[in-house]
Structures are given as structure tokens and as C-alpha cells.
Nucleic acid binder design. Sequence first.
DNA 1: TATGCTGTTGATAACGAATCTCATTACAGC
DNA 2: GCTGTAATGAGATTCGTTATCAACAGCATA
Lengths: 133, 133
Amino acid sequence: MTVKRNTWQREAVRDALDSNEGFVSAQGLHSSLRSAGSPIGLATVYRALADLAVEGEADSLQSPEGENLYRACTPGQHHHHLICRNCGLTVEIEADAVERWAQATASEHGFTQANHVVDVFGLCAACTLLAGD
Amino acid sequence: MTVKRNTWQREAVRDALDSNEGFVSAQGLHSSLRSAGSPIGLATVYRALADLAVEGEADSLQSPEGENLYRACTPGQHHHHLICRNCGLTVEIEADAVERWAQATASEHGFTQANHVVDVFGLCAACTLLAGD
DNA sequence: TATGCTGTTGATAACGAATCTCATTACAGC
DNA sequence: GCTGTAATGAGATTCGTTATCAACAGCATA
Ligand SMILES: [Mn+2]
Ligand SMILES: [Mn+2]
Ligand SMILES: [Zn+2]
Ligand SMILES: [Zn+2]
């Protein structure tokens, strides 16, 4: 069994995630860190984010463009997101009804080991105003 | 205004989509077509699939690996999919409750111009049996 | 049927996100 | 401190997708 080690790099990624509203990409987080003076490597950021997601410390989703995005997450609770297409503002959503619907739909059709992707994208109130109409 | 022309290539892509259960990638469809003797180009398949998706003749979604997948679609009706991770078998799902939930959730938080991504992945009944347990 | 305009094609190059390679570094236990 | 080995990171690589652009072909017109 491999023993996990603590490095300032992982801590830096965790902190950068925490101090960021909304979802960010690995590359975005990497350039933020570099801009702030950190010499952290890009591959390390990718690895740290993937680990955080597996460990439940980060939420992840695919942007409509296919990029993997990450966001700090209060561990333990399954939930979904409402994301502003313009500014990235994110609202965490819990909806038991949707959870039950997904599970029931899978079962009705004989599917097992079901999981689901549920994301809502839109323009937040602020961005709606700025957009004019 | 550009006038759209009819080519055997677009027709070939449409036919290949129609004769295929489940979702397929552009590259997958291209190699199917080439295997069947067609000299169609890869870029053309990408373009045709993108067009079909815009025109509502094809459904598209991102695989968990980030690949864009396409499937023939009976036009006009908004729906979602239940997809077998193993064999690609796809069931079209309509769920007004989920539609209303997505819209209501966005509105409650001041979001406008909302759209949503709702996909359910699992193992179909056949693949569940084959998988042992 | 011949002509011209222009939308379409496709081989190839380019792009970009993500992963892999591997020599080097540096945690953590002794 | 020493040591074993997990972690790092610069660079190469993979792979899906898009951009180029010269050649081609659909289609309206005469
Ligand atoms: Mn859920
Ligand atoms: Mn829907
Ligand atoms: Zn916004
Ligand atoms: Zn299956």
C-alpha cells in the first residue's frame, strides 16, 4: 500500500481552489499559481486536482467545451451545480427528487450501477443585467 | 445568405447514423464508412455531424472521457438519454418533471437563459448479466 | 448542355487539453 | 542523518478536434 506524502504543492492547489469562487480549469489554476510566484508544475496541478476530486475535496465537471473544471467542495454531500456561463458563479444544488428520478429511470429500463450527470448552465442575475438583453 | 448544397457525403453520414444503435464518435463513424468502402474524409464527417446536431437531426453528448458522441434523433422533441457504459445501448428519456425542475432552479437563483445537461449512464440488463456481478 | 459562381471537400497541418516519461527531488520512517 | 520511494516537473507524446487551402462539384443561369 502506497503511503501518501504531504507536499507544499498539494497544499498550494488546495488553497488556490479554496480562494476561488466558481469552477476553474487545471491550466487556469496553474497560471494563477505561477502569476502569484509559485514555481509549481502543470502536471502536478493536474495530478493534485484529480486526487482532490477522487477524495471528494473537489467537485469536477466538464465544460460545454469539454474542459475539465474543478471547484472546492464541502465533502460528503452529493450535489449538482448551477453555473453562470459568463462569470463562472456557481450555486450548489441539492435535489432529492432528481436523484430518485435518475435511479428510478435506470431501474425501470433494467440498468444497474447507474450514475448521472446533471448540470444547469445559465446567466446569473448580475451577468443578465450586464448583457443588456 | 449562403445556400446549402446537397452532397452524397452528408447523405452518407446521415445514413450511417441512422443504421447505428447507440451513440458513436465522429472517428468511429468515419472508420465505419471507410470500412464500407466510402472514400469520405474525416473532416467532412466532423462537419456533417456538427451540422446534423445543430439542425436537430442528431443528438449529441460528451462521453465521460470527453469525446463528442452522436446519435440519430427523431426531430423536434427535447429529451435526454440513458446510456449503457459497456455497449452504448441508448434509451431516450422524457421527463417533464426534470425539465421543470431545471427551469425553476435557475429562476429561483436569478439565472436566465438556462439550459441543462442531464445524462444517465449505467449497465444495461444484458451487460449486467455478462458482467457477472 | 455549357458556363460561372461559390459552397463543399479532404489531405494535411495546427491546436490544445491531458497524460506519459524519467531523471531529480524531498517527504517520512527509522 | 540515512534510506526507500512517492512526488515532482520539463518536455515529449497522445489524441480529439479544428483550421488551411487548393481542388472539386452542386446548382442556377443562359
Ligand atoms: Mn445527483
Ligand atoms: Mn431536459
Ligand atoms: Zn455571471
Ligand atoms: Zn449494454
